[in-house]
């Protein structure tokens, strides 16, 4: 149910927006919109269907938490 409603929402919004952008002949805007909408539908529908989504938080943790530990060692 949730998946269908989110999917319908995305389809309707994309249809209206693409029509508008093509009328105004904003090519670059159209491409960026399509790319972002693809990411958005992957994230939202993927989450509802429990598809694997790589979590950026893990990468950030891996890079920055050693620096954090090191800085705390400096201050203790």
């Amino acid at each position: 149910m949730a998946v269908i409603s989110v999917g319908l929402l995305i389809l309707v919004v994309s249809y209206l927006q693409i029509k508008k952008l093509r009328q105004q002949k904003k090519k670059k805007d159209l491409y960026v919109f399509l790319g972002l909408m693809a990411i958005a539908s992957y994230l939202s529908i993927g989450q509802l269907l429990n598809i694997y989504i790589p979590n950026p938080t893990n990468g950030l943790r891996m890079i920055f938490s050693p620096i954090n530990t090191w800085l705390y060692q400096l201050m203790s």
Binding site: D29, M37, S44
Partner: peptide
């Protein structure tokens, strides 16, 4: 919008809202 030099930032708001809300659950 400025990175891609779009004419109007308003056209990309709706996908970004969906991305932000999904990230708030996902992260």
């Amino acid at each position: 919008a400025q990175v891609f030099q779009l004419m109007d930032y308003r056209s990309i708001i709706i996908p970004l809202v969906i991305i932000t809300v999904s990230f708030s659950f996902l992260l």
